[in-house]
């Protein structure tokens, strides 16, 4: 019994066409069909945030999204966001601050952090903590992650100010 449906979407800038079972979650499609294993599976019910990816510019849980829901959509994962340089500042800040240990939560954490950095340039420390409260990290205790994001926000504000000050 083949219930599979055709699916075409754009993953990290590349068009991908496949057939998928309707029950296949986006995270399983990305990992098993597209071969992008950077986004991880942690809880499979939307609590831990390890599978956070971007669909049409918004962050979603890969384990709560069905692959077939992404027909015609644009999906960005940690691999694509790394190669495009979009995450470079955050990655560098995470590295310097040791804002990761085992690294399993990190791709989801970075995608969630990027969302905040882009949407709330003035986010306070408390807002950072709140924004990340759907991303579980068992290793770091979160402080280093919050510090790293705070650093990037401050850096971006300084750059923006300098750019604004120019005639």
């Amino acid at each position: 019994m083949d219930h599979s449906l055709p699916l075409t979407l754009t993953v990290n800038g590349t068009r991908v066409t496949s057939r998928v079972e309707p029950r296949t979650h986006l995270i399983d499609f990305l990992r098993d069909t597209a071969g992008l294993t950077g986004s991880h599976i942690g809880c499979e019910h939307g609590v831990c945030g390890a599978c956070t990816v971007r669909v049409d510019g918004l962050i979603v849980r890969g384990c709560l999204t069905l692959a077939v829901q992404c027909e015609g959509k644009t999906v960005d994962t940690i691999e694509g966001l790394s190669d495009s340089g979009e995450l470079a500042e955050l990655q560098q800040a995470f590295h310097e601050r040791n804002a990761l240990q085992c690294g399993y939560c990190t791709p989801g954490m970075l995608v969630a952090a990027l969302d905040l950095v882009k949407s709330e340039p003035d986010a306070s420390r408390e807002r950072i903590r709140e924004h990340l409260s759907g991303n579980y990290c068992r290793c770091t205790g979160y402080q280093a992650i919050v510090d790293a994001i705070e650093t990037v926000l401050a850096m971006r504000r300084t750059t923006a100010k300098a750019a604004g000050a120019r005639p």
């Binding site: 294993t37 950077g38 986004s39 790394s82 995470f94 590295h95 085992c102 690294g103 399993y104 970075l110």
Partner: peptide, 13 residues
């Protein structure tokens, strides 16, 4: 840590 930051680690799964 750099490979982990790019999602290019090598976990069993």
């Amino acid at each position: 840590a750099k490979r982990l930051l790019q999602g290019r680690g090598s976990f069993i799964d």
